[in-house]
């Protein structure tokens, strides 16, 4: 429990009444005003990528699946690797600001905002695998934003992947993102046979990064690969 909102720095005043007195305290890191601007992904969503379906025109939805995922699953090169993605929140202006301050400005402590929710999604008998950064980017940021999400949720990350070369994803078009050569490889000496794996990343945009990672892991013999991200753009 922090006294001040991690984002807007306003004091968080908690109303103590009988029910809050007896309830187990859960940590709060945002003030109610900021908290209210995080929109949870709920309702009907794509059965693979978790994208809210109500925001899509009907012609872009086929049997509870968004057209992007339909296209991935029709592609012999990509089908069946990523079992399912789950994203916590809609990628709105507010979340964009938080993630940008967290990731690009390097305000590590903001990972705590998501810790309680992520903790609930991390189930046992699963390996929690952060999407790796290149050595240069890791030095530049000082930390890996995906790894920090796992650590702050009280779990240990398993480092299975490494980047083959460095490139900035956020500057690329969807076409470029999907048609990049292999960006990851399995770290030497890692055994993933029959392991259930949960990839962790900050944002699901086209799903390309996560599918590249999933493909490597499935080829290495993983039982299943799912993913969890903070935001679904």
């Amino acid at each position: 429990m922090s006294e001040y909102c991690l984002f807007c720095h306003e004091e968080i005043t908690s109303n103590t009444n009988w029910s809050s007195f007896f309830k187990v305290k859960t940590a709060t890191y945002l003030c109610p005003t900021c908290e209210a601007q995080l929109i949870k992904i709920e309702g009907d969503t794509c059965n693979i990528c978790n994208r809210p379906l109500e925001k899509l025109e009907p012609q872009f939805v086929i049997n509870s699946r968004c057209l992007d995922c339909v296209r991935w699953e029709e592609d012999e090169e990509w089908k069946g690797y990523l079992l399912k993605n789950e994203s916590l929140y809609e990628y709105n202006t507010f979340l964009k600001e938080i993630i940008s301050q967290y990731k690009f400005r390097g305000d590590y402590i903001l990972a705590k905002i998501f810790s309680t929710n992520i903790q609930q999604k991390l189930i046992s008998d699963t390996l929690f695998v952060p999407i790796p950064l290149s050595a240069e980017r890791q030095f530049e940021r000082g930390f890996n934003q995906s790894e920090a999400l796992i650590v702050e949720a009280g779990h240990s990350p398993t480092h299975l992947l490494e980047r083959t070369h460095s490139e900035k994803q956020s500057k690329k078009s969807r076409y470029d993102r999907i048609h990049i050569p292999q960006v990851f490889r399995l770290k030497e000496g890692r055994d993933v046979a029959d392991k259930a794996i949960l990839l962790i990343d900050d944002i699901y945009t086209t799903g390309s990064t996560l599918r590249h990672a999933a493909k490597i892991l499935m080829h290495a013999g993983a039982k299943s690969v799912s993913s969890l991200t903070i935001a679904r753009s």
Binding site: G106, Y108, I109, G142, F143, V151
Partner: peptide, 23 residues
């Protein structure tokens, strides 16, 4: 705030007040 820093491989303390200008 503090974080496990890749640059010094230790727990680093950083200033949040001026973080918009770089950490």
């Amino acid at each position: 705030a503090t974080f496990p820093c890749s640059r010094c491989r230790e727990i680093c303390t950083y200033c949040r007040k001026c973080i918009m200008m770089g950490r």
